[in-house]
Nucleic acid binder design. Sequence first.
DNA 1: CTGCGAATTAGCAACCTGTGAAAACTGTCT
DNA 2: AGACAGTTTTCACAGGTTGCTAATTCGCAG
Lengths: 170, 170
Amino acid sequence: MKAPAELTAKFRASGLKVTPQRQLLFRLMHENKGHPTAESLFSVASDHMPGISLRTVYQTLTDLSSMGELRLIDVGSGATRFDPNIDDHHHLVCQSCGGVRDVYVSGSGQLDVNELDGFSVDTTTILFHGLCTPCRVTQEVSSTVAEPLVRISKSNTSSKNTTNPKERMS
Amino acid sequence: MKAPAELTAKFRASGLKVTPQRQLLFRLMHENKGHPTAESLFSVASDHMPGISLRTVYQTLTDLSSMGELRLIDVGSGATRFDPNIDDHHHLVCQSCGGVRDVYVSGSGQLDVNELDGFSVDTTTILFHGLCTPCRVTQEVSSTVAEPLVRISKSNTSSKNTTNPKERMS
DNA sequence: CTGCGAATTAGCAACCTGTGAAAACTGTCT
DNA sequence: AGACAGTTTTCACAGGTTGCTAATTCGCAG
């Protein structure tokens, strides 16, 4: 993710206005190392600028993504995540806590695909689903006391639950 | 996807009842070569059995998937798709029409991932985004007359529009 | 530095996908 | 046939995202 100043310049050059809301979001995304959802960014942004609307967060984020300064990722957890890392990379997704982490994969460009049959591939997305270390440890321990695994539904992977180990990864 | 008779037996063996609604869905999925959404299956099912509820479609489909007879796939188009093909395969996703097609990829098991760092991978999902042949042709033609490309939003890729080339692929 | 027009924002309603709950219903086994 | 457990329906509702519109703010020209 580029520095806020560069994004400001780029927005102006594109004829887009640079508002305080956008500057805040530029900064928050620039500092962000994770894969926030619109909602979680909104929540952080609200602390700095009460009254900012979720709508504005979506708008700015989609603008950034269509300018190629941001990647939209969908790991199937229900909400779109915004990735400030625009390198060619892929993601690890923890099936237990929902956390997402970047990984670099070599050789993904030369995957041998059968029967492409005229389809022209533009981008390739790879998702590795599994367990992050904290969750694997937790499950190994809890299985000794026959504790049921947490069931993941599309909505309980949101950022409201601060007691699970997700925060370490996302 | 197994034949309806086998699914019937398996459901009974698991203590699940075999209702007319389920038999219909078994049959429809068995005959299906595509990747229907719940809504589109519901629409087909409704033709055969008016009054069937969308809730039942979801229920049966999730049952099938937790029995491993069906795969749930999420190509980021908003709605979950149900894939009767449970082989180890991946998907081509047309960015223009939203169509989805199966592909077999060799070597996906040995992708070289850096910094796995304790994360244990369970399943790998690969999505190839690009243009299917019909859409590529359409775009080449339309670009000669400066026709704007169709903008894809999460909701206009549903099965309601029968005039676009998607039907050939999904 | 002032003003104007265009872009942007806030706030709310609507939409889509999917799930929860409760009541009525129906396969299945005996 | 009868009882029981699993099912279907219906309705409500939640989460995520987008559409709309009035009011506001920005950026440039004068």
